[in-house]
Design a protein around this nucleic acid. Sequence first.
DNA 1: AATCGTGGTGGAACGTGTTCCAAATTATGC
DNA 2: GCATAATTTGGAACACGTTCCACCACGATT
Lengths: 203, 203
Amino acid sequence: MSIANSATSEDLGSAAQRERRKRILDATYELAKSGGFDAVQMRAVAEQADVALGTLYRYFPSKIHLLVSALGRQFDEASVRLNDREIPGDTQADRVLYVLKRMARGMQGDPKLTEALTRAFMFADSSVANEIHVVGMAMTSIVTHAMHGGVPAEGALTDQDVAVARVLGDVWLSALVAWVTGRSTAAETAAHMETAVHLILRD
Amino acid sequence: MSIANSATSEDLGSAAQRERRKRILDATYELAKSGGFDAVQMRAVAEQADVALGTLYRYFPSKIHLLVSALGRQFDEASVRLNDREIPGDTQADRVLYVLKRMARGMQGDPKLTEALTRAFMFADSSVANEIHVVGMAMTSIVTHAMHGGVPAEGALTDQDVAVARVLGDVWLSALVAWVTGRSTAAETAAHMETAVHLILRD
DNA sequence: AATCGTGGTGGAACGTGTTCCAAATTATGC
DNA sequence: GCATAATTTGGAACACGTTCCACCACGATT
């Protein structure tokens, strides 16, 4: 399940190829984690993953694709992890805040990594639409799951639910960007999210 | 007033220097408008503004600073233009939607320019905090002005008002980014904004 | 086993953001 | 008006994303 990004109907490749792909994403992750966006240099990724530069580009057509794919893997894993659990909280607002803050805390624990991935996400253009879509779906899934309190009621998603989730996702992302770029502190980020959630989810 | 970005306590410089700065921002604007982010090449900006490359870097320490400064000038002007007018609409939601859609339409009329400026904004790190702040203030000012229906009641801004404006600004920015990066159409962008505004401003 | 084709390798080369520097020009204080 | 400081200039040089290419390795086909 953690290789679920292969679920986007394009999962060809021999075992050796899957192995290479994994090594590349792992190297990306490591470099991003320790040095942020700038440290993820294509030559360095290639060397650490033990592939040639040309091979790296065969698997991921640009640095942005690479980083957004890594972000997708992260979100996928987070989504799976959260969707297995019951979300604590009595109101929608409480539960949504719980997961959003949890995710924010997780990302703030790895500032460099978060900076790299967020930067890449914001910089992506339409050629990265597929990878972006994976991230968007994971985000929506996480928020709607929290809204429904951990009940895996897939069918019960109204348009309204999805719209709310998207708006919350937007705010969350903006807040994260502000934090990543050093324009707001972690506390301010949390407060801003709290405000937004209560504004949108007053039930 | 349109050079109000100099209001950030750092407006030294001879007439010749102010003139150079203006030429540089104008060149940036022109290049961005006709070719987008990629067309704003530092060598090209320098040439078109008729300054040396080194001088360009003395005035703006990076391409991102340059573009965000240009964005700041744009927002400043838009903010001044809108704050002079009475905003049509009976409810807060109507008025806010009016200005947001108006701005979105304006930006969509210049897709390349918008792409360049938005990209730069999203890519900016903390070293661009000053320039970013100018943009954020203009955005908040525009939204709160619309909420109050064109009454220049500066003192009447509650924390709640500002919080709402910030959330709306976040959503607007996310929607704009999605549009710029080709992930959603103009119509979807408008619809998404409409949803968000009605969600947040149900009075 | 020989052949073929797909994909991997190593590395050169190019474009653009950024840095740096010596020489020329302009501004400032006496 | 001159000496000195500050800015501007022109251009070389460097870093990193990206492209390209000639060659190699290995699994499938005959």
